[in-house]
Design a protein around this nucleic acid. Structure first.
Lengths: 214, 214
DNA sequence: ATGCTTAGATAGTGCCACTATCCAATGGAG
DNA sequence: CTCCATTGGATAGTGGCACTATCTAAGCAT
């Protein structure tokens, strides 16, 4: 298949595919002549994955490249590989250490982690992006005076733990480490909008139940 | 308090505050002279809220304005007010109706909604943004060959319902409709990074448990 | 009275994800 | 065998967005 067909079947403009090739999100095709390359089904699949990461998962192009590299890095063991992929994911601004609310937030988060027996997720490489993201968000809530103590967060954390069990069950249905790593990234990135919208729908339902006319 | 102090106490540059005033995210201060205005604690609070929406919640400026308008629109009843606020929130690209995967996704989502007894969330105003977001995300998963049937999604939906119960419990701790609406937006927008990072931390924990070398 | 601050207007910046244009080299249609 | 559409590759341009910088006239503070 040549560029035009790849574009046709993926719904991505040829100029954009060239851009992704330049950026290293797609491997080059098999060179046939000086001006033609041949692309296979694997390119199509990869292109769809990249598109989903960028459009649905809102992952920046540069980040997508790092995530894909981590997924395919076979110098890592499986736990590290999954970690590397999720470490590269977008995670918002770092905590503002000048703000006293950050200190408060950190103590609550640390308390929560301890209560649940979770590790900070990054003894070797510093706190994980997810941990920093959590501290930032909790600090913002704290500044606004909304409840964000370990006690308030614990029920949500327990629900998250149940999500994670489902997530990893699904990952383990795949056979090869590479497929597993790809599945883990998909689960983390593409399931996020799914879970988010499910929660919003559930909130609407619950709101109708409590406040709804009708 | 004058502009400089508002900037000082919020950590937001004066130029940015002027920008927010121009964009209607902040009400103008009380005019003291032709070139001075006085701002109060309420401005500070509002500014912090706006900042949190934009920086932590990644809500575009134009969208933040709409959300704030909906929260303060007292021509709506409470359920509608909460709905209007969340309708305005960012929700990604609309489903691609040309793609057969979208049809498949829609059927699964509709089946799931029926199974749970949820309404589509928008009989009067068309499908809700959350519903469209869910269809888009499920279609993307479908195209990539990942499981996204109603059967797979149901456990996550049930967890979302539990989150929603906690969410609305918290909303109901506030007395006035306005505070409740503000709390609902905060919960939807600012809790999202919290839940997201909790899930990622839980995944890391579960991954360590299953794959981890210690 | 004089230097700092402010409101308000306008223009510029930096980043990002594309998108458009060119060129030389094919390659397939007739 | 000729000729036009397509390709890879290089480079430059676009549009959206969230600021950010500059300027001016008018106070206020000392």
């Amino acid at each position: 298949m040549r560029l035009a067909e790849l574009s046709e079947r993926s719904g991505v403009a040829t100029a954009t595919i060239k851009y992704y090739l330049r950026e290293g999100l797609l491997p080059p095709g098999r060179r046939v002549t000086a001006t033609q390359s041949e692309y296979g089904e694997e390119h199509l699949r990869r292109l769809r994955f990249v598109r989903a990461l960028i459009q649905v998962g809102k992952v920046p192009v540069a980040t997508a490249r790092e995530v894909l590299a981590a997924v395919e890095d076979d110098s890592l063991n499986q736990h590290m590989r999954l970690g590397a992929a999720t470490f590269a994911l977008p995670h918002g601004p770092d905590p503002d250490e000048d703000d006293p609310a950050t200190g408060t937030a950190r103590r609550e988060v640390d308390g929560l982690m301890a209560e649940l027996g979770w590790s900070h997720g990054g003894e070797k490489y510093g706190p994980s992006p997810a941990y920093r993201m959590l501290v930032t968000a909790v600090a913002a809530l704290t500044r606004l005076g909304y409840p964000s103590s370990a006690r308030h967060l614990a029920p949500y954390a327990r629900l998250a733990a149940q999500q994670a069990v489902h997530d990893l069950d699904l990952v383990e249905t795949y056979d090869t480490p590479l497929e597993q790593a790809a599945a883990a990234v998909t689960l983390t990135v593409l399931y996020e909008p799914v879970l988010l919208s499910l929660r919003r729908l559930a909130e609407a339902e619950e709101s109708r139940r409590r406040f709804g006319v009708e």
